[in-house]
């Protein structure tokens, strides 16, 4: 499988376009070696001890050796190499970094990786089985529910979390409970349309 995670690949985006239609998921062993490498960099004398953090990311066990000051977001991106989760503010103000942690949507920038030791994390890369799309992902494409796409991973993870909570029924309730995810491109109406469509489908099943 063509891995998106090839370090030296300067032509990556060309490949990405060729791979259109194929979901590319990072294979765990590829980033595992990266993690080991980073750990060596980080563990320097004089600073505070790093510790082992075990996470289950998208179903795959991941062992990270991290200093306490690494946020869950940076652990996912810089250490586990899953860059689908985005950083838009690093202060809980935008929702771009939303992931699902032990079944609940959270902003990964405002928690520490060490605090989530033992947790199960689902990121955008893992919301659907490999090679498949989650109904929300399909609906987002169909409804043109993004422009630049930067808020999209967070919007989708957040919507999955919201639907699991089961508290939002009406469109107004969905809007309120999705308000923790900003979209600067102004795809708001299309995003809510996409979510409502999936939510209504689910309701009929």
């Amino acid at each position: 499988m063509g891995s998106i995670f090839s370090f030296e690949d300067g032509f990556l985006f060309l490949r990405s376009i060729q791979l259109l239609g194929i979901i590319v998921i990072v294979s765990i062993d590829v980033y595992q070696c990266y993690i080991t490498m980073l750990t060596e960099i980080v563990e320097k004398p004089g600073l505070i001890r790093s510790g082992q953090v075990s996470l289950k990311v998208n179903g795959n066990p991941v062992q990270l050796n991290l200093l306490p000051w690494v946020s869950l977001l940076d652990a996912i991106r810089d250490h586990a190499g899953l860059t689908g989760t985005k950083k838009g503010c690093d202060h809980g103000q935008c929702g771009a970094c939303t992931v699902i942690c032990d079944g609940k949507r959270i902003v990964s920038c405002l928690t520490l990786a060490v605090m989530k030791d033992g947790s199960e994390i689902t990121t955008i890369e893992g919301v659907a089985p490999e090679g498949d799309l989650h109904p929300l992902q399909k609906a987002f494409i169909e409804h043109d529910a993004f422009q630049c796409g930067y808020c999209t991973p967070g919007q989708i993870c957040s919507a999955i979390g919201m639907m699991k909570e089961g508290k939002a029924k009406s469109r107004e309730e969905v809007k309120e409970l999705m308000s923790g995810n900003l979209c600067r491109c102004g795809a708001n109406t299309n995003i809510i349309d996409a979510i409502m469509e999936v939510q209504n489908q689910d309701a009929h099943e």
Binding site: L82, T123, A128, L133
Partner: peptide, 9 residues
Amino acid sequence: QLKVTGTAK
């Protein structure tokens, strides 16, 4: 697809 799956870099 690349944008909704987080693969767009």
